[in-house]
Simulated assay, not measured.
Amino acid sequence: MNIVIDKAQDQDVERIAQIMNTVKEAIQDPEWFCADNQEFITRHIHESGFILKGVYDHEIMGFLIVRIPKYEKDNLGYDIGLDHSKLSQVAHMESVATLPSSRGKGLQKLLMMEAETILRKDGFTYLMATVHPGNVYSLNNFTGLGYEIVKTMKKYDGKERHILLKII
């Protein structure tokens, strides 16, 4: 299977939103995944980061939203006490989702590895993410790529989350 990883464009926003909703409906526990709206998706194509999509046979199978929070209050660097001078070097692996029919093909890993390559070239040092403690599938994908749990706390309207960090 030849999966192509590419940056998402405006014409992909609706499909990414559909995949988010499909994953949210299919997920084992609704606490594990927070779906975003199309405005959020569009903002990350144009100004707040970038989105990578995994495409097979001209169909998007999954995506990864990478958020560049800079000094915004939701920067996960604040949660772990990162020095203010380093906050501009933080990137969030904000949201990653794969269609249920495409799971088990290593797509999340491919998306993450490509994002890390881009972020390393762009001078980012601190890659961060949040994962629900019960979502062992996503957690194993992150830890398998060298992310470590550095804190567990309530985020996103009181939902329990591990905060993960990888220094590149």
Score class of each variant (00 low, 15 high):
residue 80 I to Y: 00
residue 70 K to I: 02
residue 86 K to T: 01
residue 36 D to G: 04
residue 26 A to W: 07
residue 112 M to S: 09
residue 165 L to N: 03
residue 43 R to F: 06
residue 2 N to S: 15
residue 168 I to Q: 00
residue 7 K to P: 12
residue 97 A to W: 08
residue 166 K to D: 04
residue 133 P to C: 08
residue 109 K to R: 09
residue 125 T to Q: 07
residue 137 Y to C: 13
residue 120 R to I: 05
residue 140 N to Q: 05
residue 4 V to D: 14
residue 142 F to S: 03
residue 8 A to D: 06
residue 72 E to M: 13
residue 5 I to P: 04
residue 94 E to M: 08
residue 55 V to Y: 05
residue 106 G to R: 10
residue 68 I to W: 00
residue 97 A to I: 10
residue 159 K to R: 10
residue 71 Y to W: 11
residue 70 K to T: 08
residue 160 E to L: 13
residue 42 T to R: 15
residue 58 H to R: 14
residue 8 A to I: 07
residue 105 K to M: 15
residue 136 V to P: 02
residue 139 L to P: 11
residue 72 E to F: 08
residue 61 M to L: 13
residue 158 G to Q: 06
residue 137 Y to W: 10
residue 14 E to N: 08
residue 82 L to D: 00
residue 150 V to L: 02
residue 76 L to Y: 09
residue 5 I to W: 04
residue 163 I to C: 01
residue 57 D to R: 12
residue 2 N to V: 15
residue 40 F to N: 10
residue 166 K to Q: 11
residue 49 G to H: 07
residue 140 N to I: 01
residue 70 K to G: 10
residue 21 N to P: 02
residue 53 K to I: 13
residue 161 R to N: 03
residue 23 V to I: 09
residue 116 E to F: 03
residue 2 N to Y: 13
residue 31 E to H: 05
residue 17 A to G: 04
residue 147 Y to D: 00
residue 142 F to G: 02
residue 69 P to V: 04
residue 109 K to H: 05
residue 29 D to K: 04
residue 129 A to D: 03
residue 154 K to G: 06
residue 100 P to D: 11
